[in-house]
Amino acid sequence: MSFSNNLKENVIRSAGVDPKKCMKCGKCTATCPNGNEMEYKPHQFVYMVEKGDIEPLMNTDSIYKCLSCFACVERCPRGVEPAKFIEAVRVAKIRKQGENHLKADMIPDLLDEDLPQQAIVTAFRKYSK
């Protein structure tokens, strides 16, 4: 449990926002363009981080579903900015040894001739350390 608490503190520190400010309105999830693709939706990230229930979040694909579109950051009425928790959990995950979601040798198969560098760089930023 101490490990989990430590993890919770790290995630909250990394997110830089306070999950306790959430009033559980669900506007983040309502406005998320990718919410339908997520096992854990944005509002659950906030709540589960607050509870210290971080392991399931680390192990879900949902952390790779956030598009960084900032819609929830923009529209959250309480300044909780849920995407920051998704990012914090994702960072906690990919910083672990061998936990890269995208490896360099996977890239060539994914490329097409028009794909802008921006997409590749962003994917690396999001998927690996």
């Binding site: 669900g26 983040c28 999830t29 309502a30 998320c32 529209r75």
Partner: peptide
């Protein structure tokens, strides 16, 4: 739950909510 966005489309209002 809250409404996240209202999208006016044709004569409808698409309400996205949770």
């Amino acid at each position: 739950g809250m409404v996240g966005k209202v999208i006016p489309e044709g004569d409808k209002l698409i309400v996205r909510a949770s």
